[in-house]
Design a protein around this nucleic acid. Structure first.
Length: 341
DNA sequence: ATCTGTAGGGTGTAGGCTGG
DNA sequence: CCAGCCTACACCCTACAGAT
């Protein structure tokens, strides 16, 4: 019984109980089809038995024109302790599209192999699989997001992944966004993503958390709410769309920060069309960010290439932007490359 | 040279506001 | 009313100063 309790606790404590909804994958992937023809897709943080990523790519294998689909699945030691047999060993799957007449891949069509290790994306055997891949698509563990992205960059992979919104301001992540090496996917980042949950975890959330914050109920089904968004380095149409600006600058409407030499613009849609100086905007600006239209300078977080130092005014705090004595939330500093009259 | 206490920046989770 | 958007805040972590 006590082992049972521990198991339950282990399950509840396990962070990665959030499974991406098939509809969210479909809605995002829809915008990238040309990128996938003849490509090897790798989902390296997936359990193919429950993952909608594997499901999506195996079902869309032929329409997308994929060359190969590879999936690896992480299994931590915790689970092994309680399992009765070795069916919980880490596995990897390879699918090259051979199909039976039903159009749905059968187990015979898919090569299922055991991994030597635990399936950690950082392990040598998983890196070997990564090297074969053209595009990586998955929902990696948020706690390892930095390392995860660093590895993708190191091996020069195209990717389409889900991460926490706050990851934008991580000091390892923001430079990639500034340098246009990574950007926001098509699904608006301002909207929360909802996730499928295992039954026990859904129950745990309902019992201990608040509806609307930790979870939401959709058609009677409990979905986990997370401040998540898509990150990618695959080009898409949205990031080339001009953001239409209607407001005009005036010093009264657009105050300067007390501690930064920049103008506060509290809503992206209020960016003045005729202003060429540095502006602070909410991080959700990145939804509308078109690199031909705007230049990203830096965020209010310290670090970076020293640019931010030039914007600091004498003040007792620089951890948050301050307007008329009142602190506001994190901002991204931008400049309009082509202000209009 | 190493330890330790502390300040404050960095990160993640959750909650709140509001306009259509 | 609630999706869309913004913010509060606790706790972790790191750097660093001063002590040993």
């Amino acid at each position: 019984m006590s082992a049972n309790r521990n198991l339950h606790k282990a399950k509840v404590n396990k962070k990665d109980e959030f499974y991406t909804q098939l509809s969210d994958i479909e809605n995002e992937l829809y915008h990238y089809w040309p990128h996938f023809r003849d490509k090897v897709v790798y989902c390296n943080c997936d359990d193919p038995r429950v993952s909608n990523f594997f499901r999506y790519f195996s079902l869309q294998f032929e329409p997308l024109g994929l060359k190969k689909l590879i999936t690896t699945c992480y299994k931590n030691q915790q689970v092994d302790i309680f399992s009765q047999n070795d069916s919980e060993r880490a596995i990897w799957l390879e699918y090259d599209g051979t199909r039976n007449e039903t159009g749905v891949p059968s187990i015979e069509d898919i090569g299922v192999r055991h991994l030597e290790g635990n399936g950690d994306f950082r392990s040598a055997e998983c890196i070997e699989l990564l090297k074969q891949a053209d595009i990586v698509v998955t929902n990696p563990p948020f706690s390892l997001f930095r390392e995860y992205v660093a590895q993708l960059i190191e091996y020069d992979k195209k990717f389409l992944i889900i991460g926490n919104k706050n990851a934008i301001t991580y000091k390892e992540i923001f430079p990639l966004i500034k340098q246009n090496k990574m950007w926001v996917g098509v699904t608006p980042m301002s909207r929360d993503l909802l996730f499928d949950l295992p039954k026990e975890y859904a129950q745990f959330l309902v019992e201990t958390k608040r509806e609307g914050s930790a979870y939401k109920v959709l058609d009677g089904v409990v979905k986990g709410r997370s401040q998540s968004m898509w990150f990618t380095n695959l080009d898409h149409k949205k990031r080339h769309e001009e953001l239409i600006l209607t407001k005009r600058y005036s010093p009264e409407k657009y105050p300067k920060y007390d501690n930064y030499d920049a103008t506060e613009v509290s809503k992206t849609k209020d960016i003045p069309r005729d202003y060429s100086g540095a502006m602070g905007v909410p991080i959700t600006f990145l939804d509308k960010y078109n690199p031909e239209q705007f230049e990203i300078i830096w965020t209010t977080d310290r670090g970076g290439d020293g640019m931010i130092e030039f914007m600091k005014k004498p003040h007792d705090r620089h951890d948050a932007p301050v307007v008329r004595g009142k602190g506001v939330y994190k901002r991204i500093f931008i400049r309009n490359k082509r202000p209009q009259a």
